[in-house]
Design a protein around this nucleic acid. Structure first.
Lengths: 181, 181
DNA sequence: CTGATGTGAGACATAGGTGTCTCATTTGAG
DNA sequence: CTCAAATGAGACACCTATGTCTCACATCAG
């Protein structure tokens, strides 16, 4: 397979850049168990690799969310299931957020599209009674992402299982962790 | 003042690295309105600058939190006021989290100390009834940070005032943004 | 005025990451 | 087996960030 090597390189790139954002292409190639020349055969340079990573991350997140959401009967439930499904990939989303060097116009458009889709789902959920109507949807989207990433960190540090983290994140988003007084 | 230039450089470093983590020291010096040689007179190199930034950020966050918390009568209130006070500086906290290249042992110790202090405050707040006792304190701390950063992003993108963002973040943490059904 | 300190500008050498190329070897399809 | 495609290893030149140094200038206290 031609794509197999490219995929291994992408996977290695996520792994390496995750804990060393300034890592070199040599590091990535080594992690992928691949010669540096081979890396350049698949990705012309750093920018192209980063762009490919962003596209990959976005596609994976979209896939996993849509798949999970497809089993839901309400928008609220779709958001809950989608959040749980995205947790293992949250670092990839986080990664591409902090990366201003990725400037593909198509990518920016896709980001914008997903953002609007999220806002739309949130507003549908509001009309279902799943979210408080007086809270700005932009904030709900923002805290959704924030808690999603927090959940990923809990899993990463082994302070929680994926399932526990998902429950905690959703509970926090919907009812908070206050004492109830 | 000797320190004035150093402070300007630090301030510029926060500003520049915030939206371009891979920025060069030349960029930082330019942003500070200072010659590149002058930057090296105050900070031997990139590492020392980064470490100084981390120390500065940590000190500022600690100061602003303690000052705000001093006016509170309960731990719960202290956390609420502290969160609000830290929002404008949240990017600095976020910055040093993602930076593995800062390896000062003293810094790591201080990070650990503050982390434990936060856990302690949360557990005191639990005993006051401010947080649900069945939720792991580690998660509360994690979501506290996550929502703090989310609030900062809302302010940065001008989707909310600092006060609005603080209210939203605290509300989300304690009671959530669910529809209440 | 005078001297000390801090600075800006620029030259300079260095190191490391990057991109390209070559060649021998391996892999896999036919 | 046979051949084409893919790869690993390494050499090579290039570029940029970096760190150091020098010198002229500005500021300011004495």
């Amino acid at each position: 397979m031609i794509e197999k090597t490219a995929e291994a390189i992408l996977e290695a790139a996520f792994s390496v850049f995750d804990d060393t954002p300034t890592a070199t292409l040599t590091d990535v190639a080594a992690e992928a168990g691949v010669g540096r020349a081979t890396l350049h055969r698949h990705f012309s340079g750093r920018d192209e690799l980063l762009t490919a990573m962003a596209i990959q991350a976005m596609r994976e997140l979209d896939d996993v969310f849509e798949t999970a959401a497809a089993e839901a009967e309400t928008y609220t439930e779709a958001l809950r299931l989608g959040m749980a499904a995205m947790i293992p990939l949250a670092n990839r989303a986080h990664f591409l957020e902090d990366w201003p060097s990725v400037n593909s116009p198509a990518l920016a458009a896709e980001t914008e599209r997903q953002k609007h889709e999220m806002i739309h789902a949130i507003e549908q959920a509001k009309s279902e009674g799943g979210f408080a109507p007086d809270v700005p949807s932009a904030w709900i989207a923002q805290s959704f992402d924030a808690l999603l990433f927090a959940a990923w960190e809990m899993v990463k540090s082994e302070d929680a299982t994926p399932k526990q983290a998902a429950d905690l994140a959703w509970r926090t988003l919907t009812t908070g962790v206050g004492g109830g007084k």
